[in-house]
Design a protein around this nucleic acid. Structure first.
Lengths: 209, 209
DNA sequence: TAGATTGTTAATCGATTAACAATC
DNA sequence: TAGATTGTTAATCGATTAACAATC
């Protein structure tokens, strides 16, 4: 149904999904592109264009079914099923991801966490126990792993990612400040928290001028 | 020196800064827009356009001084001075931010952390002790606070941000999955980790089609 | 000088917005 | 039916890329 979808549209999809979920819990059954646009600070035109990348789901003179559209976008995003995540790195970030309950609430379930630090291996993180990274390959062979969360130092991120790719991992959520080079067909989302702070700093400077 | 700078350019600035730092540690003294473009996967033309938003810093026939350009972009980003951050929320995210050493390494220093949970108040997070959120206003009056890190539930994020704005906080790093409405002149960067995971899920689905 | 590379203007490309016939 | 609102095409806007004179 969906042909080429631009990056700009993709980046807006999660916001659509979130607002539709909110509307649903507010008990709103139907919404027009105009109404949704006012809520999301987008033009009605843009909303219709975006939604129509995936086929017509509205009704003329009526608008969109909130529940129907939410479910539809959920399927497009792939959040209608669960994803098994393994975390590499038992530091602050790795632990925070493992302990958060907002990711499992959205279907992203952490199933294992690894580190190479003997001090950390064997210690508990929520329901999980940190495993030795030497057991990583074996684990992937024996279990379903959809996404690898890279919460490791820059120095080893690329090598580790390459190794995980050879083991068949096709999705990476990367917290290391590096642009990973991965083969065609491998999906990656970079978090780059540091860059967000720098952009914030820049905006604050601009405000002062 | 800088007039209007587009969002597209702003979002690339931290990557420029990072690559220039890397080049500097590699001992590279000079680089052309072509060379930097190959490294960053951008066109030479785009790099020259971007840099020239802030005034000419290159030399014809030579290129750019790595150290000079890094310093220049650092000043533009405002990372040539330190920023005092307070964290609201002593949960997983708040603690991870407080404990990370990569933020202070870039000049973003956490100076206090607050929570409203009596269980958490008084407990230590690295060098800091979690304070009662009721002391928040007083703290801001008596100390310099550049950035507030919102690591709180969605339900209280907007109200809290409004309050912080009245106390004079002008920069927000928001981890709550909500589009905060803040007055003109207040800078905000949203992290929205959940959305990143959803985009990753989407990309992985696309790959399978 | 000749070669390299910038800064900047022009051309292209893509994304957003506007307009409107179709229709619920 | 009349009003509302979609899906879609056309117009506009902005960002990226190409081209090239200036010059180190």
């Amino acid at each position: 149904m969906a042909g080429y979808v631009s990056e700009a549209v993709i980046k807006r999809l999660p916001a659509y999904y979130r607002h539709l979920k909110e509307l649903e819990t507010e008990g709103v059954k139907q919404i027009s592109s105009k109404g949704l646009g006012e809520r999301m600070q987008l033009t009605a035109s843009q909303i219709r264009q975006d939604i129509n990348c995936f086929g017509g789901f509205g009704r003329q003179g009526y608008g969109y079914s909130v529940a129907g559209l939410r479910e539809h976008i959920g399927r497009i995003l792939g959040v209608d099923h669960t994803h098994a995540m393994i975390i590499i790195g038992g530091g602050n970030i790795g632990r925070a991801v493992a302990l958060s309950d907002s990711f499992p609430a959205n279907g992203f379930q952490t199933v294992a966490i690894f580190d190479n630090d003997q001090e950390k291996i064997g210690t508990g993180v929520g329901q999980l126990t940190i495993q030795d990274v030497s057991e990583l390959k074996q684990y992937i062979l024996e279990n379903t792993v959809d996404i690898a969360v890279l919460a490791v130092p820059v120095s080893i991120a690329q090598e580790l990612a390459d190794e995980l790719v050879t083991c068949g991992v096709a999705g990476f959520w990367n917290f290391a400040p590096i642009d990973l080079k991965l083969p065609e067909g491998i999906s990656i989302v970079n978090v780059h928290l540091d860059e967000g702070l720098e952009i914030l700093s820049f905006r604050m400077m601009q405000g002062l001028v």
